[in-house]
Design a protein around this nucleic acid. Structure first.
Lengths: 176, 176
DNA sequence: AATCGATAGTACATAAATGTACTAAATGAG
DNA sequence: CTCATTTAGTACATTTATGTACTATCGATT
C-alpha cells in the first residue's frame, strides 16, 4: 500500500465491512453510531501512539505530556490533583502516579495547600517550563501534520459535532 | 449541575480554557488540532467506560466485546489473530491475551489452520453467538442513547470528517 | 465544641496493555 | 535443494490504568 505514493490506505475498512455484515444479521443494530464509536477508538489509539513516539526523546509519554500542558495552561502554572484529573481526563488514582513520576523528574513540585489542608498544590518547576518550551515545536508540527487533510472549515465543523457528542455523554448520567 | 434537568454540563470546559491560555503564551500552538485531539480522547474514555459498565453484567468487557463483534461480523464467524488485530484495533500481543480469556469462557474456539500451519483460526462457538444475541439489545440501546443528540445528517457528516482525519493518520508513515 | 457526612488525596492490589524476544512455518533467491 | 528472510503467533517482563479501601480534613448541624 504505502509503496504507492498518494494512495490513501484505509485502516478502517476491515472494521467497517464487519459492521455492515452485523447490520444484515441483526437489523436493529445502529450502524451509524457504531461506526462513529469505532472511528473514535481507531483515531484515539493512533494519536496516542504517535504522541508517545514523538515524545519519547524528551523523556516523557503522552499522559505526562497532557498533565504538563494542563499546568502550563493555568495561570501561575498551579493546579491541584482533582482539577488535573478533570482537565487531563484521567482518573484520580492515575493522577497520583503520573504526578509522582513528574516530581521524580523534577518537572513539577508538590506542596501542601495553605488554605485547605486536604488539598495538594502542584506547580510546574522552571525545569518543567523549560522542557515544555523545548518540545512544543515538535508537538505543533505533529498536530499540524495529523490534521493536514482537514481544511480549517472542516476542523471547526468537526469540533462542533464532537462537542455535541460529548455533551450528550456528559448528560447521560442524569437521564438513565 | 445535574440537579438542573436540561442543563447541559460541559466536561470539556476546563481543558478548553487551558488550551486557550496555552495559545496566548505560545502563539504558534495550533489550537484547533489540539482541541480536536483532546475531544477525541475525552469521548473515547467516556464511551469506553460506559461500554464496560453496560457489559459487566454479561461477564465481558469492552475489548472482549469488540473482538466478539468483529467475529460476528465475519462470514463463518471465523478469523485469525492478525485479522482480528486490524479489525478490532488492538496490538497483536493484546489479541493473544483477550482471545485466551474468551477461550476460557468458551465463547470462541482456537484451532490450527490447515493451509498455513503458522496461522491460527478463531471461531465463535454457539455459546458465543448466543451471548452476542442476548446482549445486543442493550448495546443498541446504549449506542442510540449516546448519539441521541446528533441528527442523522450530523452523524453522516461526522463520519466523513473522522474518516478524513484517520486517513491522514494512516498515510503519515509514508511521508515522515 | 462534638458529631456526621462529604471531599481530597493516596496506597495498595489488580487488571489491562505494550515491547521485546522467541519459535515455527512459509516464501523466495541462488 | 538450502539458506536467508519474512510472517504468524505467543510468552514473558514491564508499564500503564483502574477499583477500592483508607486517612485526613473540612463544613454544616445541632
Amino acid at each position: 500500500m504505502s509503496h504507492f505514493p498518494g494512495f490513501a490506505m484505509n485502516s478502517f475498512l476491515p472494521t467497517e465491512q464487519r459492521l455492515a455484515i452485523t447490520c444484515r444479521l441483526y437489523p436493529a443494530f445502529p450502524r451509524e453510531p457504531a461506526v462513529l464509536v469505532r472511528l473514535i477508538k481507531h483515531i484515539y489509539k493512533r494519536v496516542h501512539d504517535d504522541a508517545n513516539a514523538m515524545l519519547k526523546p524528551w523523556g516523557i509519554n503522552h499522559p505526562e505530556y497532557n498533565i504538563l500542558m494542563m499546568m502550563y495552561g493555568t495561570e501561575g502554572f498551579t493546579l491541584n490533583p482533582s482539577q488535573l484529573a478533570d482537565a487531563a481526563g484521567e482518573k484520580s488514582a492515575n493522577i497520583t502516579r503520573l504526578t509522582n513520576e513528574l516530581c521524580d523528574k523534577a518537572l513539577i513540585e508538590r506542596t501542601a495547600d495553605a488554605e485547605d489542608r486536604r488539598k495538594v498544590t502542584l506547580t510546574l518547576t522552571a525545569k518543567g517550563v523549560a522542557l515544555i518550551e523545548k518540545f512544543l515545536p515538535d508537538v505543533c508540527a505533529l498536530l499540524e501534520q495529523e490534521t493536514a487533510s482537514l481544511q480549517s472549515r472542516e476542523m471547526v465543523q468537526l469540533e462542533r459535532l464532537l462537542k455535541k457528542f460529548l455533551t450528550q455523554l456528559d448528560n447521560q448520567t442524569d437521564q438513565g
